[in-house]
């Protein structure tokens, strides 16, 4: 990974709230860096309404110098949908975790995608419920130990990890943009997020980016193991790349 040429801090970040509230080694900071750079590059700071969910994503409530609404668990998608429908000039972002997007708020994600809402959803996949203490999430890997799968996720009992972007891509219509990025490739992630926001700005359709992220606190991993989990374990189930790209655009895979 060569991130040395990236700015140390995006302009749209809020200086007063730094250092941020996430755990050391948490992936959120990187995702929000990619988002901040995308906002800066597009020059849209004054038009963005950033909604954040409950779970660790709520710690982003004062992360940016943009209008921010911290909502309820799973309900960020409808809140920003409501804003967008009432004010089509707004560029709205729903920022959530895997529990918020794929479990408690899955009906909102599915239906926003089906309606091709002009919103951008960014979902951070760290394979567990972080803020509540590391329980099984829809994205927990088979065999992965969490506080509610003490013997490892048994797929016979708990099913397989949710393939979120694939699900959204299956529902979304032409014009939608769906991708899965990773904190292990920040330049690519920034590109995906930027394209997602542009998709909204151009009025093409729904946009969704899942991000493979890290939760060393609940994984109980050191730096090396953390990166190995993100880059080697998670990618076994979660393929990084663009999954649905509007016809006009032209896709990109991670090969």
């Amino acid at each position: 990974m060569s991130n040395h040429e990236l700015p140390r801090m995006p302009k749209s970040w809020r200086l007063e709230s730094k250092p941020h509230k996430f755990c050391p080694g948490c992936g959120h900071g990187l995702v929000l860096k990619a988002l901040g750079m995308a906002i800066d590059e597009l020059g849209i700071q004054d038009r963005v309404v950033f909604g954040c969910d409950i779970g660790c994503s709520l710690l982003a409530w004062d992360f940016f110098n943009v209008d921010t609404i911290q909502t309820h668990h799973g309900r960020t998608t409808p809140v920003v949908t409501g804003v967008k429908r009432a004010n089509p000039e707004a560029i709205v972002i729903a920022y959530m975790g895997d529990g918020g997007g794929y479990a408690i708020g899955s009906q909102h994600l599915v239906n926003a995608a089906a309606r091709n809402e002009l919103i951008t959803a960014i979902l951070v996949n760290n394979t567990n419920y972080g803020m509540t203490g590391g329980q099984m999430a829809p994205t927990t890997l088979p065999g992965q130990k969490t506080e509610t799968t003490p013997y490892g996720r048994d797929v016979k009992e708990a099913g397989y990890p949710t393939q979120g972007p694939e699900m959204v891509a299956a529902i979304a219509r032409e014009g939608a943009y769906v991708a899965r990025g990773t904190i292990a490739n920040l330049k690519q992630l920034t590109r995906f997020i930027k394209k997602a926001l542009q998709n909204q700005m151009e009025g093409r359709g729904f946009s969704f980016v899942e991000v493979l992220s890290a939760c060393p606190t609940n994984w109980r991993t050191n730096a090396k193991d953390t990166w190995e989990f993100v880059e080697k374990e998670m990618t076994k189930y979660f393929k990084v790349g663009e999954i649905k790209v509007p016809a006009a655009e032209g896709g990109e895979t991670d090969e």
């Binding site: 309404v49 609404i69 909502t71 309820h72 309900r75 409808p78 809140v79 920003v80 949908t81 409501g82 804003v83 967008k84 429908r85 009432a86 004010n87 707004a90 009906q107 909102h108 599915v110 239906n111």
Partner: peptide
């Protein structure tokens, strides 16, 4: 305008979004 939502949770939260955008929603 009108938006038919997927359930009442969404109807309530989108109404909140409309209000936050400054509309009588």
């Amino acid at each position: 305008k009108f938006l038919q939502t997927e359930d009442e949770l969404s109807a309530g939260f989108t109404t909140i979004g409309g209000v936050l955008a400054g509309k009588r929603a």
